[in-house]
């Protein structure tokens, strides 16, 4: 399997462990990733808030760069998925608008083509389940995550709005984390916050609302006996992990729950050690996860 790869901004900034673990996991799964190093930020909804056409053109550029490779495109960020899908929907809906935007891209010698052969933009989670296949994944597992109780945390942009994210064709996309956790041998923890908002988008505008959201979901997962959370969104990771001590103050309770990036969870099951996957770089301690798996040989 070979894919054009958009790592996003945060995975190369505050959460480099995500970018690093994705590279390791891709290698062991036999997925070849062609990094789109000329591509730009998706805008995370903020640029669209300022100027819709600007966001649409920036993402059309990323799609066009991916289409030049002739491959499907993969991202590792729920927010990239949502922001890019939103722009793609507008680009696909109107041929005159698409032509207008392609005029700008022509300067770079590239073009966004609607329904280009083999082109789809998918989060790693969707690629794993729909294209790579859970049976194939299971066959690669060398250290089943037996006894590890994992709470899924999706991130809003990959589950809503349903009409824009391919749910008509793939109605179970909001259950994929559960199926991946089970395929890796782990135990799914059901808790109230798994599809709610981490609060990150308002961390600089309403800190209290933001941290209360993060703290509440972590608390709910702990109450249900989770050993860790797993998320396909690095922005959720920032609020759930990096801000966790601050969130604990807002909800006034002890937290301390490891939050793993999706490739880290997969990587553990493929036999990588926590440190190789950058789990020592997290704010909330991941030692407990390591201890849980220590008895299971890699």
């Amino acid at each position: 399997m070979k894919l054009a790869y958009w790592p996003g901004c945060v995975s190369r900034g505050f959460t480099t462990e995500l970018h690093g673990s994705m590279a390791l996991v891709a290698e062991r799964l036999g997925i070849e990733l062609i990094t789109l190093d000329r591509a730009n930020c998706c805008g995370a909804g903020v640029i669209a808030e300022h100027n819709q056409e600007l966001a649409d053109t920036l993402n059309a550029r990323t799609f066009a760069l991916a289409q030049q490779t002739g491959l499907g495109m993969m991202n590792i960020c729920s927010t990239c998925q949502g922001a890019q899908s939103e722009c793609q929907q507008r680009l696909d809906a109107d041929s005159a608008y698409r032509a207008h935007i392609n005029e700008v891209l022509a300067g770079e010698g590239i073009e966004y083509v609607k329904d280009a052969d083999g082109f789809e933009n998918k989060n790693f989670l969707w690629v794993l389940v729909e294209d790579y296949g859970l049976d194939e994944l299971k066959a690669k597992v060398t250290r089943p995550l037996a006894g590890l109780r994992v709470g899924p945390f999706y991130g809003c942009y990959i589950v809503r709005p349903k009409y824009r994210l391919g749910y008509e064709e793939h109605p179970n996309r909001d259950l994929y984390l559960e199926t991946v956790i089970e395929a890796l041998g782990g135990e799914v923890v059901d808790y109230d916050g798994s599809r709610k908002c981490c609060g990150f988008p308002v961390i600089t505008m309403n800190r209290e609302t933001s941290l209360r959201q993060a703290g509440t979901h972590i608390g709910d997962a702990l109450d249900q006996g989770a050993d860790c959370l797993v998320t396909p969104c690095p922005l959720c990771h920032l609020n759930l992990d990096m801000q966790q001590p601050e969130a604990a103050k807002v909800v006034d309770r002890d937290l301390g729950l490891a939050v793993l990036h999706l490739p880290q969870l997969v990587g553990l099951a493929l036999g990588y050690e926590p440190k190789q996957l950058g789990m020592n770089r997290h704010i909330a301690s991941t030692e407990w996860v390591g201890e849980r798996l220590a008895g299971v040989p890699a």
Binding site: Q52, E53, L54, R90, D94, Y97
Partner: peptide, 21 residues
């Protein structure tokens, strides 16, 4: 260049109103 072009035009599309082609 994309910035210059988009800031000049600033097209806004509302699919609720225009619908999908």
């Amino acid at each position: 260049r994309i910035y210059e072009h988009a800031e000049e035009h600033g097209t806004e599309i509302n699919l609720y109103i225009t619908g999908e082609e």
